[in-house]
Nucleic acid binder design. Structure first.
Lengths: 333, 333
DNA sequence: TTGCGAAATGATAACGTTGTCATTCCGTTA
DNA sequence: TAACGGAATGACAACGTTATCATTTCGCAA
């Protein structure tokens, strides 16, 4: 009985006006007389009319949607998505998401191809690991593309946390307080975050002419931090440890304690992400916090800003913040 | 110089074939001769043709997209989104996401209205708090709608973790091991998860004729658990504590220890979400884990299954799993 | 060669909007 | 009353696909 789709034409007929008038009621209501507007509104109501997205965007030549390719979903991703979604909402865009996941090797080109068949005016790639075609990738010329990644890209705009800067900041915090060296516990090897944090740590030490000690390999979880802590506890010159995340930092601290060492009196520790307080009461861990939400907002704004000039290119770094607690001892005191 | 959009017509002209043949090359390649196919493919390549989503879906009458309204983004959300995204990918759908967030009161009706103007064949509402129009809401008749919520809905399909069952399971685990009572530490008051977990705890006790003690109010974070733990440590009859999440459970355990009590020898503890092991080395906490990823998969499958019959209605509960560690003592031994 | 049937291709009409331009309406002024 | 002008409305084409149905092409048997 019900016609499947109610079109503007159906509404027009029901209201006794022309197709174009219905269109006007929707898009420029002020240009139509109030009495007419009411007729049309009641007709729409009665028929259950909803504007057809496909027809509208076909005519308009744009969708009002920004594509987001997730690739890999990790911890901070919720906040980032939250930021992207909020910023999109604010600017009147919806998000079109794909994941392009799976065991097979994934490439930017594949993601771009898939994306460009979907309703998107621009796109954001959330890239947290390396991909084969990173450097050779070229985005569609008419589709603004922003990549969330710590690496620089030859042609696309990129947005990233300043992971390297955050690590440097943490190291300098140690060094400025009289520590002569800083040990490092890394995250999973393939993670770009971990790599960047390590790079920043190295750079900060070398800038002061300090030879960086061999980093300890972790896997983000507390147990790997604990293992690293047991090793570090035996190194007499170890007064400062930078762990690539809070969970491992906590593992390190527990190991040190189990070995009879005190934090911060014997060894100082800094982590990343500032999330330990959620899990540990009265947490003392000083930590470098990245503003993932802000990151998402910036990425989305960058896309929207570039919609008109997709070939423009920029690089945005969102700085981290050092959240001070009491896990670092000032040796100069 | 470049024409903004390359259409199938342009390709057809370039390849010296008809429009329809180009269409066939894309949609039913076997029905066109190989030599023709090659001509068309080269023309597409040369011109940089990409099929126009709007035109395609206008003609087909469907989008190949499932809408996801996030409302509120919380912890387990990443895994759920991950599940939704993977299941969508597998079935050839993309996701259209909006957040419908913000300080203002949000309603299902608003979300549905916004959604139905977007490219969606069906939709998923991720509802973790109560909304005013929950019971009165009616989904568009032609758009399959699935709500992720622990509450039953009069007309829409719903999918949920079995939070109540999980809590009951944990309680019975205590009771079956000789505990005479179970104390409860809740999460934030407005959270439906917390409410359901509390309900399950109550039900399990009452089923055995035990009067549930006054629940302790927490806020999901460790500090609130710690505060609750200090209170519980003074109750001589408290041998078992169920905390609404792992972070608070950890807070409880730390407080008990600080008060000279041992877990599990003096007091047994169970948490929710099984995530403490990430942060605490050698974690002993037994915990009820919900399969958020599975939840997302089910929700998506439910939508897709109902695309043809949007008015069908079902209720899916995804059971939790009790991950046993050593934080519960068997009093019968 | 011719004729035939199947395979390959093409002409044309939709799908439901918005933009362009023409037309009608209505109140105001001469 | 007639003429005017701006506001309100309408007719029609276009956006880029896919579906229907007609037409052409081709290989093969007669």
């Amino acid at each position: 009985m019900d016609k499947k789709n109610v079109s503007m034409n159906d509404v027009a007929v029901a209201a006794g006006v022309s197709l174009k008038t219905v269109s006007r009621v929707i898009n420029e209501p002020d240009s139509v007389r109030e009495s007419t507007r009411d007729k049309v509104h009641s007709a729409m109501e009665a028929l259950g009319f909803r504007t057809n997205f496909a027809a509208r965007s076909l005519k308009l030549g744009r969708y009002g949607c920004i594509g987001v390719a997730l690739f890999h979903l990790s911890g901070g991703a919720v906040d980032m998505i939250d930021g992207i979604a909020d910023a999109a909402e604010e600017r009147g865009f919806a998000l079109t998401m794909i994941k392009k996941c799976g065991g097979e090797k994934m490439t930017l080109a594949d993601a771009a191809r898939r994306m460009s068949q979907l309703p998107v005016d621009g796109m954001i790639f959330n890239l947290r690991q390396m991909v084969d075609d990173f450097d050779s990738f070229e985005a569609p010329k008419d589709l603004k593309t922003v990549i969330i990644t710590p690496m620089e890209h030859p042609t696309c705009s990129t947005v990233s946390d300043d992971q390297e800067g955050g690590a440097r900041m943490a190291c300098e915090y140690f060094l400025n307080r009289g520590h002569k060296n800083v040990y490092f516990v890394s995250g999973k090897e393939e993670s770009l975050s971990s790599q960047c944090r390590m790079k920043g740590w190295r750079a900060a030490l070398e800038a002061r002419g300090i030879e960086p000690p061999e980093p300890l390999q972790g896997d983000w979880n507390a147990d790997s931090g604990y293992a690293a802590g047991l090793v570090l506890a035996d190194k007499p010159d170890c007064t400062a440890v930078l762990a690539a995340n809070d969970c491992m930092a906590n593992g390190v601290m527990m190991a040190l304690r189990d070995k009879g060492l005190s934090v911060p009196d014997d060894v100082s520790v800094i982590g990343f992400d500032d999330e330990l307080y959620k899990t540990i009461p009265n947490s003392i861990l000083t930590s470098v916090k990245f503003r993932h939400r802000e990151l998402g907002i910036r990425a989305l704004n960058e896309v929207v800003a570039g919609l008109e000039s997709p070939s423009s290119r920029s690089r945005t770094l969102v700085s981290g913040v050092l959240v001070e607690r009491s896990s670092v001892k000032d040796l100069r005191a």
